[in-house]
Design a protein around this nucleic acid. Structure first.
Length: 280
DNA sequence: AGTGGCTCCTGGCGGC
DNA sequence: TGCCGCCAGGAGCCAC
């Protein structure tokens, strides 16, 4: 399931092939992919040159100057110039033709992915409810502590709530909580200053590691060249139920939090905050 | 306002 | 062997 590292990997792969190219056609083959019609899309996109490909959280942003095309891969969306073995024979949900005769196809088995074309001036409003970008300077320990404060929601739900933090999904939330040694059911507001510092570092390190490994291919994620990521090879807890913790050997447990499968080490991530010695 | 629960969607898998 | 039902989850919507 594409989260920030997977979307960033797609962005980096597409960038050199798409930037500078002019959009010559847009075909919507599955109308449920967008609230906008093919005619609306064409009116906004045709003839425009892709300036950059950006990313905000899990959204990909094709900057066409006064217009931006926004794509969300959701669970199974793939943007590819050539169908790979899995996509072959399937109908893409939309495709974009470029002036170098390349065509970018959107394959999406579960059909959760979405496409928008909007005036670039409307981008701030479009992302008004989206939280901090965890790999940018604005995401500080202070910022994290402020947004954790007073919240009753479990840490797992907090991390995957896109209004709090942009780009973290089920895999990286579980992995970041393991790295921070925090139990997924701990209340966000109950996290102490030092724990918040650990969580801040863990989120950043986990996402960076994910990008370095070009994402996790646990579902069917592949980049636009059909290549799998490698982060799944170094997962500590996600989908390792019953397997020994890589740190202490305790079997990894699976629970459901907010309706989502959640994996953790019951020994490394105790339910109760470690007791402070009242010493002195 | 914040939180939790439901829904969408389909391939894959367990169970009988 | 075949088929039924369940599971996975990002985000939007709704209810409390």
């Amino acid at each position: 399931m594409p989260e920030l590292p997977e979307v960033e990997t797609v962005r980096r792969r597409l960038d050199p092939q798409v930037v500078g190219r002019r959009v010559t056609d847009v075909c919507i083959l599955d109308q449920t992919v967008s609230r906008q019609s093919q005619a609306e899309m064409r009116a906004l996109l045709l003839g425009k040159v892709v300036r950059t490909i950006g990313r905000r959280g899990k959204w990909l942003l094709f900057d066409l100057g006064d217009v931006t095309m926004v794509v969300h891969l959701r669970m199974t969306g793939r943007l590819m110039f050539q169908p790979d073995a899995e996509s072959a024979g399937r109908r893409p949900r939309f495709h974009i033709s470029l002036d170098d005769r390349q065509r970018l196809y959107f394959y999406d088995t579960r059909r959760f992915g979405r496409l928008w074309a909007l005036p670039s001036v409307d981008l701030p409003a479009f992302f008004a409810d989206l939280g901090a970008e965890p790999l940018e300077d604005g995401f500080t320990v202070r910022h994290l502590r402020d947004s954790l404060a007073g919240r009753a929601a479990p840490l797992k739900s907090f991390l995957t709530d896109q209004r709090r933090l942009a780009g973290v999904g089920n895999i990286y939330a579980d992995e970041a909580l393991f790295r921070a040694r925090l139990h997924p059911l701990r209340a966000a507001g109950g996290v102490g200053p030092r724990e918040a510092q650990r969580l801040h570092a863990a989120v950043i390190e986990t996402l960076r590691l994910g990008i370095e490994h070009e994402g996790s291919s646990v579902e069917s994620f592949v980049d636009p060249a059909g290549e799998r990521g490698r982060f799944q090879e170094i997962l500590n807890v996600y989908q390792r139920t019953g397997e020994p913790c890589r740190v202490c050997g305790t079997p990894i447990q699976r629970i459901v939090v907010g309706g989502r499968g959640t994996h953790f080490c019951p020994r490394c991530q105790p339910r109760r905050a470690a007791k402070r010695h009242a010493g002195r």
